[in-house]
Design a protein around this nucleic acid. Structure first.
Lengths: 230, 230
DNA sequence: TCACTGACTGACCGGTCGGTCAGTAATATC
DNA sequence: GATATTACTGACCGACCGGTCAGTCAGTGA
């Protein structure tokens, strides 16, 4: 199927039809969602007949899943490049967050596609794929945080999963709502993801770093203690 | 809005048809999105003829905008009840965050509808409505934070808009991805929004509170200072 | 009594949807 | 050259889409 037809006959069919279909579908699905995209539109963009799409993919849903599968594979690759093993933890966290956000924006279509799938309720198959990507990224970040706790750089009494959720959530939310944030006069970082992640990590660090002599231990409420028991 | 009457199906049409249409449309649009919902489905659920919907609303898009308008009005009302003027700032922040998250889950349909609109790219009209709600909530939170800075409870060198974004973003992200988080073994708070907001505010507070003797002033990087100049 | 109105409906419209199919062009195999 | 396989297409299908329309019906004011 993946006949390496690179640079052979550039006259008529430029590139493999399957690849063109996938690319067109990815762009349209990411932009408008599954239901708002017709097979005709995909065919037109991919410069093939609609019937040809059904020759390569058994149904619209199968095509969508194929697109999602490729997107998740690519996304996982991108995310695996974020991991940095060396250096002090603040630097590693800053690095991870900034690269993560940059990667999300760089591959905006893929990101949007996966996020769209993530907040769906039905559709088991699709969400499992997106969940895998998300889970990998999550586990990677938790790993960094656990290392930081083990080395004493981070407080041991905090839940690393909570911090990871907060960190990833902040990035995802910024990606999703950047256009909206742009319209708020109070917000000065809407146009600058780098600055946003700097501010983000800075806030987080001052809260989770243990090196400074913070003895503060919530003085106002008898609420649930932050019992991160492991 | 939370009109029961779901499992009864009385022989006569109870309630105003317009209200029933709006309720049915809200539920379906929130769950599946604009394109995946047909006028037939709305008519069936509202127990009216499809033609009757067009008697009350000029088009499908007009109906959608009406639904969105109602949702935004309701949402604004709910959000205005979050504001607490008295008490120490940590308590106010905790209160605000917990109530905000609880309100999002309590009115899940409305929330989903607005969030869906928020992360769209096109569609000026719809997003302006959602942006208004979001902006009000945002401004409210910034106001709390500014008060805290003025009273000396919060560090003055931090950008309140950044903290507000982080706080709201964490809530939104939790709402969106709760189902997914549930599947992660590391995550123990997925089923408990109250606990999540407790942990969230706790982390934030330890970072942004100035009352304790935190003299820590980033010791590792010459990176961008958090120059929140107002 | 009667004219008028707005809520409401079933039947129907043109168009588009996802999907099928018979057939053609190109390529590989013998 | 004959043949089998694959890539691809235009024409077509039934279902359903958003939307229209003629007409029914209950209420209302004169």
């Amino acid at each position: 199927m993946v006949s390496g037809s690179a640079a052979t006959t550039p006259k008529r069919p430029v590139g493999d039809a399957t690849a063109r279909i996938l690319a067109a579908a990815e762009a349209l699905f990411a932009k408008h969602g599954f239901d708002a995209v017709s097979m005709n539109a995909i065919a037109e963009r991919a410069n093939v007949s609609k019937a040809n799409i059904f020759h390569h993919f058994s149904s619209k849903k199968a095509l969508y899943l194929a697109v999602l599968r490729v997107a998740c594979r690519d996304s996982t690759e991108h995310l695996q490049q974020l991991f940095v093993e060396t250096g002090p933890l603040p630097e590693r966290l800053t690095n991870f967050t900034q690269k993560q956000l940059a990667s999300m924006f760089e591959h905006g279509e893929v990101t949007r596609l996966i996020l769209r799938e993530l907040l769906k309720d039905g559709e088991r198959q699709g969400r499992d794929l997106a969940e895998k990507v998300f889970g990998d990224n999550f586990a990677q970040l938790v790993e960094i945080l656990r290392t930081g706790q083990a080395s004493g750089e981070l407080r041991a009494d905090m839940d690393p999963a909570m911090i990871a959720t907060l960190l990833i959530g902040a990035s995802v939310f910024f990606f999703e709502s950047q256009e909206v944030l742009r319209h708020f006069p109070d917000v000065k970082f809407a146009h600058d993801p780098q600055r946003y992640s700097s501010l983000l990590v800075d806030i987080l660090l001052r809260g989770i770093l243990s090196e400074n002599g913070v003895k503060h231990r919530r003085a106002d409420k008898p609420g649930p203690p932050s019992s991160a028991q492991q």
